[in-house]
Design a protein around this nucleic acid. Structure first.
Length: 344
DNA sequence: AAGACGGGGCT
DNA sequence: AGCCCAGTCTT
């Protein structure tokens, strides 16, 4: 039996029952694949359910407000995915007359759809014979061929893409691709792979060996930046103040308390300058939260302030209430703070 | 080619 | 603490 048959047969017997796997169509696969980028199935699954219920087709997604999309996306991370999906849905409506693209070449024109996602949609929903190469596939191939070239190098990406495309069959490419990924997720795991139950262990170059956990090889190390945030929980009667983040930084489009970044000695003045409020603030130091991101470690001090007036408040700030915050997309750090004060 | 972009789970 | 996850875009 050839490689692809082993993968596909194993997949049919062992695949997980996931909602986008019955009646695959481009829109559903697109939605699931974007959500699952750099995201485990267990984490992404409830988001897929929420989004598919709210937006059952590309037209409803295109007509949605970006604020509502980000609100649904809250807590999933990499929020540019949600913004790009909104843009892409409108591309489908205008550039493709409302019909979701059904081939690799056109799919790649959509914002947020790269090599991997275009191949996934094309093969799973459109039966096009093109290989997906995600983190799972890198791992399966690196081990199967005992290939130690770094997967995050330009040459490595090329090598693994060529290997993957030599293996993908003309018939049922979607089952083959999903089988490769499912194998990586369930059997050929990063730690302690289950070689004994692997359908391709007889021809795998590193099965059962000490080298298997050393593959695949990555060359780059992530650099972690430390940041200090001073957040101000401003209170006026039952009102609080937030604003929307923008610019090239984390959490673009999400809302937060007024923020002064850095180890400021002049917090009072910084806060006046930031908000336009001109009064003496009675600052009370509240809790400190540490928030870990892939590239950043954020130490956030939260201060509470009782305001005597909102006079002078700059227009970019939104006056709302703690209860009404559920209608704004918030970074997890803000959510963690709200949870912590509600407990006490 | 390198850096930026979240959050969660597992070791 | 470190690594990884159905990656893509920007610089």
């Amino acid at each position: 039996m050839n490689f692809s048959s082993k993968i596909t047969d194993w997949y049919k017997l062992n695949k997980r029952d996931l909602p986008w796997r019955n009646n695959p169509e481009p829109y559903k696969i697109w939605l699931s694949e974007i959500i699952l980028q750099q995201t485990r199935v267990a984490q992404g699954l409830p988001y897929y359910e929420k989004f598919f219920a709210a937006y059952p087709n590309v037209k409803s997604f295109a007509n949605a407000q970006i604020s509502d999309i980000l609100l649904l996306w809250q807590g999933l991370g990499y929020y540019s995915r949600g913004r790009n999906m909104h843009f892409a849905a409108n591309q489908v409506m205008t550039e493709f007359k409302g019909i979701f693209p059904n081939n690799f070449k056109d799919l790649k024109k959509l914002k947020g759809v790269g090599e991997y996602t275009a191949a996934a949609i094309a093969s799973i929903a459109c039966n096009e014979s093109v290989a997906v190469v995600d983190g799972n596939v890198y791992r399966v191939l690196a081990r199967y061929f005992n290939e130690a070239i770094p997967i995050d190098s330009t040459e490595g990406k090329k090598i693994f893409s060529e290997l993957a495309n030599e293996l993908v069959p003309k018939i049922n490419p979607g089952d083959h691709n999903q089988g490769m990924m499912e194998l990586g997720a369930l059997i050929c795991t990063p730690k302690k792979p289950d070689c004994i139950n692997c359908p391709i262990n007889s021809s795998c170059q590193s099965a059962f060996s000490a080298s298997v956990e050393l593959l695949p090889v990555k060359s780059k190390k992530v650099k972690v930046k430390e940041r200090k945030f001073n957040y101000f929980h401003l209170k006026f009667e039952d009102k609080i103040i937030i604003h929307k983040r923008h610019g090239k930084d984390i959490w673009e489009g999400l809302h937060q308390f007024p923020l002064v970044e850095g180890e400021s000695q002049e917090i009072q003045n910084e806060l006046k300058k930031l908000t336009g409020l001109n009064q003496e603030f009675g600052l009370t130091k509240g809790i400190t939260l540490k928030h870990i991101l892939t590239h950043q470690r954020i130490f956030a001090d939260f201060f509470t302030v009782d305001l005597t007036t909102l006079k002078g408040l700059k227009s970019e700030f939104i006056v709302t209430t703690l209860e009404d915050l559920e209608n704004f997309a918030l970074p997890k750090l803000m959510v963690n703070y709200i949870e912590s004060i509600n407990k006490n």
